[in-house]
Design a protein around this nucleic acid. Structure first.
Lengths: 208, 208, 208, 208
DNA sequence: GCCTAACCGAGACGGTACGTCGGGTCTTTTG
DNA sequence: CAAAAGACCCGACGTACCGTCTCGGTTAGGC
């Protein structure tokens, strides 16, 4: 999946004329952007600050990203923990793992930033791309889990699959939204326990 | 619930000395703020713009709201449809109505704005108040629905109530997030149909 | 003669509501601009630098002057020695004084800057105003000198007056242009001596 | 007189190894520079613009001229009408021709540009070379005129020669400065008439 | 017929300044 | 004597050039 970053090579792998872009600068900018983001938050995230921190001219930044928002999205996207696949051997285990992963993701500053951007995307077309990408990732992860369950011979009420996934993801999101500030110090164990109980509850809906 | 707005008269109806506040200014600012918000979105919402639009000096705004975020919150809050109580005579009917209301709320620009502010509240303490208020409203609405169900003699698995509500609200939120851009033209009937099927699904979880 | 500076009160001496422009800031900007100009020259003269030096925000500068050129012109104009009237009792004395003044003016960095701006004015309309003003001043000064001569009863070839003045001013300008860099250390006495000899020469042209 | 342009062959006419410079590029750059200069003026004259216009890389420009100012000077110099010698058979005729030539030169955009550069040269050492060169040309032209007059047996007040030339050149310059904008449409005949009357006036100063 | 060196175009690089805009404060006049 | 108006300082925005640099590729003479 390509990023929002302006692509130097458009539709061709042929080398473009002129001095090639410095790949080191690219990484330095992204690193600086992450630091800037984590230190100052999304509102006080500044192109000037990123360029200064990266030891790079502003034009070098603007050559790659069209504006502040694009850099913000890209830098967050580049670092946010991806939703890796899970395979615990059972549908229940997979769903618990999946849900816990999402909860962990949302409680991480970068993950939550990604979520915020996703939320903004409904109103801000600049963010649409990253939003779609994230939604797709989550859908794919869920699909794989259920595909494996079917392969194992589990009997599943197919009509319930999509709504159940929606409920699970939604319940986790609600958790973070409603208790985000209070559960700041919740332990990993608590997270998993909560996810387990939620999964055990909705699992009944999948029985035919 | 009072607003965040600075109050001039604190506990007394006695006329305060000095020039009285322009009673019209308040409303003109709020109206202008709403317009500004709807036209330019939350990120490009500016005090300068609101003041200009309202035909008012910036300090007139700052006299009433401490900063940009406070005005943004207040103006959105003042206009966003509140979650009114529902009573259809059955738990199922109430939940369908409740869910449909939330879906409608989130699909309205101002309602969605309120949601975005709630999301930002996790990172921005300035928004904490409105976020808590909204969450509380939703919780209360749900609680009333279930209280009435108990009064009617319905047998409910009490342990499942909170998770089920969380799932319902979460599922609706996921709907808007994932299909927000695509379902722009979905009809009212579709909304209700979708909510009905979701409610019918999770309703099984409440049976003891 | 008013400057190019944006006028706050347009067509009325009535005090405007709101905080008035800080007259101190005005002067601090002009002083800083002069310093900036003298230290770095017209090409490296910078609004950022002036604002920094004056301890003033850039917007405070842009509130008064529309752009870099306007501030440059105004600051130079404000300080450049004006062509004061001279009255030595004789036409010859007056012309020597007038010519020496112009020579001194042109050899002073600010005066020369004014001259450069005048030269640029032919191509750059932004400078037209100051150019016309300077030319007019010089014309008036010469006119007064000759008016007094006529009053004293001197017989003058009227047809020669304008060309002679043109020659005198032009000769001085040529001096500065051609020897500007070399005569950096010329003394005041030298200046006057040179002007005297030129005046004595062209004075013959005024005899009827 | 050689230009400021970097010379490829330093002190030897021996062919240097490597690819020789493209002689066409040289001319294309100069042409583009002239166009750029005439369209945008000296202040907004940019190397980027010249290179773009000439269809040439920036390095090709910087290989030949050390910086923006040098290219500006060279391009103007290369095109500005040179002060050719004049020989009409009489001192009066020569001076009229000389003066008219200068007036025409100054009223031409490129000629005036050269003059502006000369004026800037007093403060900007980068322009010193072209300024000296122009002054020298003018001095030589005048010297030749007077040499021929002496050869023809004219009796001339030698002490008055230099000041008179200074006055003539100066008067023409003043003309352009003061009336530059207004006399835009003056005809060739008018120019010559004005020069004639000025020459006729100052000619008296040369009689011993 | 390669080798080497300088040129060519293209364009990225770190900088600096531009003129605009917005946030939140401060200083006047107004009611 | 507080409200209102608007100037204040600050600093980021995105753009445009500067003069330098690094590419891939071209064009000659020397070997």
């Amino acid at each position: 999946m390509t990023g929002i970053r302006d692509e130097q090579t458009a539709g061709t792998d042929r080398r473009r004329p002129g001095r090639p872009r410095d790949p080191v600068a690219e990484q330095r900018i992204l690193d600086a952007a992450i630091d800037e983001f984590l230190e100052r938050g999304p509102a006080r995230f500044t192109i000037d600050g990123v360029a200064r921190r990266a030891g790079v001219g502003k034009s070098t930044v603007y050559l790659r990203w069209p504006d502040r928002d694009a850099l913000l999205v890209e830098s967050v996207r580049a670092r946010s923990r991806s939703i890796e696949d899970v395979d615990t051997g059972s549908l229940r285990g997979d769903l618990i793992r999946l849900t816990t992963n999402l909860l962990r993701f949302l409680r991480d500053p970068l993950g939550y930033a990604t979520f915020r951007i996703t939320v903004d995307a409904v109103a801000n077309p600049a963010y649409e791309h990253i939003a779609r990408e994230l939604a797709q990732k989550h859908r794919h992860a869920a699909r794989r889990v259920f595909d494996r369950a079917r392969t194992r011979g589990d009997t599943i009420d197919e009509a319930a699959v999509d709504p159940v996934v929606e409920c699970l993801y939604g319940a986790v999101t609600m958790q973070v939204l409603n208790h985000g500030l209070d559960m700041a110090s919740a332990s990993e164990v608590d997270l998993e326990a909560h996810c387990t109980s939620t999964v055990d509850l909705v699992l009944r809906l999948l029985e035919p």
